[in-house]
């Protein structure tokens, strides 16, 4: 994002969102793969975070603040959604979860 001339706050927001998602992948998904893609024309960084964990049963519930299936605060997913400029979760119970998020510079 430095290369795109992003302001500190934009970087912090995106990195924090990714940190939330990656941590989810590590704790609940048993490890996660992160792909970063930088799109210069739209000054946007796209990040895909995939795991092959248990998946999310109830998406609306998972995205709501205060819900957690583990011991966290339950703000990770919903918080990351607020921090990112674009946010998408695909999850198949039993197969895994893919979170895609984007931050504009």
């Amino acid at each position: 994002m430095d290369a795109l001339g992003a302001k500190v706050i934009r970087k912090t927001r995106l990195v924090t969102a990714v940190s939330e998602i990656f941590r989810n992948g590590l704790i609940y998904g048993g490890g996660a793969l992160v792909l970063i893609h930088c799109h210069n024309a739209t000054r946007t960084v796209w990040i895909d975070c995939c795991d092959d964990g248990p998946g999310i049963e109830d998406m609306a519930l998972a995205l709501s603040d205060g819900y957690t299936s583990g011991s966290g605060l339950g703000r990770g997913l919903g918080g990351a959604k607020r921090l990112a400029d674009a946010f998408e979760v695909l999850s198949e119970p039993g197969i895994g979860t893919q979170v895609r998020l984007a931050g504009r510079a």
């Binding site: 912090t12 990195v15 924090t16 966290g72 605060l73 703000r75 990770g76 918080g79």
Partner: peptide, 9 residues
């Protein structure tokens, strides 16, 4: 530079 919910907690 980064404080996420884990570190915040």
């Amino acid at each position: 530079e980064i404080v996420d919910t884990f570190v915040g907690r």
